[in-house]
Amino acid sequence: MSRDYRAPGPLVRRVLNPLVGALARRGLAPGDTAVLAVRGRRSGTLHTTPLTPVEVDGTRHLISPRGETDWVRNLRAAGGAAELRSGGRTEPVAATELDTAAAVPVLRAYLDGLGRAAAVLFDDVAPGASDAELAAAAPRHPVFALA
């Protein structure tokens, strides 16, 4: 089965994600970084991933710069049911995947917030991209609204 996925390197997978996740759980990570906890689609085991939600028009969103990652596939299989954990707090959330048109302003806000650092996560779109460029990239970067 083919999917649009860009795997993180060993440094991110083995060092940065565990470190950022540990900091987020303690409320010490930068910005609004939190740990997403979602049940595995096959195992049912709780899987965690550090992510930084972005708020647009009063709604928080999760974006997958690396494409159809396992957390995206698990979140879809779980019907959007997950938890965000930060600073010792656990918040149940319901995630709804956005269509391309709704994803464009969220991707813009996320990319603009990252600035030059966006190049580390996104290899196909950058801050300042046009609506057409963002719409073309949106199917490769799932976006979820949180409630």
Rank of each mutant, 00 (worst) to 15 (best):
R89K: 12
L28P: 11
A132V: 08
T59N: 02
N74H: 13
A37E: 15
R14E: 15
G115E: 04
R13K: 13
D99K: 03
H141Y: 05
V15P: 12
F122H: 04
A138M: 07
H47A: 09
E97P: 11
P30T: 02
P30I: 04
R60Y: 14
L16A: 15
I63H: 04
R76W: 00
G31V: 03
L114P: 11
S43Q: 02
V54Y: 01
P53I: 11
V93H: 00
L121C: 03
L51K: 07
G40K: 05
P142L: 01
V104R: 04
A37G: 14
T49S: 07
G31D: 10
L19T: 14
S86N: 13
R60F: 14
A136S: 07
R73Y: 00
G88R: 08
G44H: 04
R116V: 08
R13Q: 14
D32F: 04
G44Y: 05
R41Q: 07
R73N: 07
L46K: 07
D112E: 15
P65S: 01
T45E: 14
A102H: 12
P50C: 07
T90M: 09
A82G: 10
S130R: 07
S43F: 02
S64M: 04
L84V: 08
R14N: 15
V93D: 02
A117L: 15
V143F: 11
V38Y: 06
E91H: 14
A117M: 14
E68H: 13
D57S: 12
G115L: 08
A95Y: 02
